[in-house]
Amino acid sequence: MNSITSNPARWENPVRQSQQAFRSLLQALSRPCMPVSMPLPEGGAGSLPPELAAIALTMCDQDTAVWLSPSLDTEEVRRWFRFQCGASVTSSPAMADFAFAARPEDMPLLSDLSRGEPEYPDRSTTLCVGGVSFDREGNSLSVLASGPGISTSLMFYCNLPEEFLGRWEENHQAFPQGVDVFLCGQSMVAGLPRSTCLKAQKEETSCM
């Protein structure tokens, strides 16, 4: 609590840094499954990983509702969202514009989030997951990604649980409705828009 009160996570230069962070997010979503580095705020936001704090400071304000995974849903993090972003916290994932999960294990079911409506697929939740590693070695998931933003296809590695693939397929099939995901960790962010197709791939198989 004290760490937040005395030194809450925020941009030293909000105009410049939120522009830079936004460009990282825009690039990440435009070039799915290619992690890009992003600027991180100084200070603490409780259990909220710094990459997620960066997204919140860049994208959230009084016009956005935010859902927090159980491990993030503390008074400390709520207060931070209220005072640093002006965003309101909702307990219903389907009502959230942005959902934040501290770690891959904390991810809500994609089907519990909003996919938008047929006429307005933009009224969907964007899920932001922290604690993601993109190392090739020792990660649980290696997938072949294709779709808009990807020239032919590319291999992507991360520590998301294996059951994620089935859930993602269902999400992807609902296109143009669906949830978009930002995977964050190691000061990087990778985008996973609903338009991306993921296929499980053994590492040995070469992709193009």
């Binding site: 997010l25 979503l29 016009d63 956005t64 828009p193």
Partner: peptide, 14 residues
């Protein structure tokens, strides 16, 4: 800018 940026991310996703 934030409002437009949120819209741009959706635009890229769909």
């Amino acid at each position: 800018k934030r409002m437009i940026r949120r819209g741009l991310l959706k635009a890229v996703a769909v």
